[in-house]
Amino acid sequence: MLLRHETVLLAVLVVELVFFGVAGRNFGTADNIANIVRHSVEIGLLALVMMPVVLAGGIDLSVGSTLGLCAVLFGKLWRDGGLPWEVAAVATLGIGAAAGGTNALLITALRLPPLIVTLGTYSLFRGLAEAITRGTDAFTRFPPSFLFLGTGRVAGIPAQAWIFALVAAAMWLLVHRTTFGRSWRAIGFAPEGARYAGLPVGRRLAFAHVLAGIVAALAAITYTARFGTAKADAGTGYELAAITAVVLGGTSIFGGVGSVHGTLLGVAAIAVLGNGLSRVPATMSNAGELSGLLTGMLLVLALAGGAVPKWFAERRPR
């Protein structure tokens, strides 16, 4: 009998926690756990909304660039537009929705493959961020009330962790408890079948992409609040980190299979690995390289773990 992917991943996470708890220096302290959470909120948010897109059989390579564009426009609205940061933040969410809407329009109305469309907008959104700031302009000196979102704590827990938990819970309900989630699953499993079954395939796909844009904008806000500076290079490479977490979390890249809690476990497994390696004396000077290397291997192992028994089963004489 095959174990559920999420269970295996949970075991991996527990092994990581135990191993680093023993071998890592000051790994299990509250401050360090808070660090792990704070540093993975942005990639976690992107992974949470990448998940439905992938579940429905698509992909979104533009989320990192959307983050960069939104960070820059947020800064622009607040500093040059003179808006209070709260208003600028809401407007930024709208900009994120527009960015996601651009993807959605091209993908659903013109029936173009999401990989190509988002490869184009990956370049376009980052390019707009660079063009708006000429590459050089940086937005900084945000008010403390805003920076609190990224550096403060509420009830002992990092402020942005609450935002993340809220989004995670909402996404869980949306994917696992509503017709939206079921239709994404159906579309990913068999797009034509879903169409014949009367599902509004285009609208459901569009919704997933717009959602991705909005949450990428939210990630832009927590990123800026944590780092204190918004520049055109914010979020570079985050799309791949998010996809890695989603796939490690057991969502099939072909769509149709996946869970939100799996994605959360994927985010956690990668974040704990990276943090833990920087605390074990033998690896602390190569933590950056090793965490990339081991994440890659973990990804293959996680997938192969499911595939190897199948491979043997096929070869068993019937």
Binding site: G292, L293, G296, L303
Partner: peptide, 21 residues
């Protein structure tokens, strides 16, 4: 081909593994 894993994921993994290695 052997394990029937999705190519985008496999090559994403080899991409980071080779680069960091």
């Amino acid at each position: 081909a052997g394990l029937r894993l999705p190519s985008i994921v496999v090559t994403l993994a080899t991409m980071v593994t080779l680069r960091e290695g």
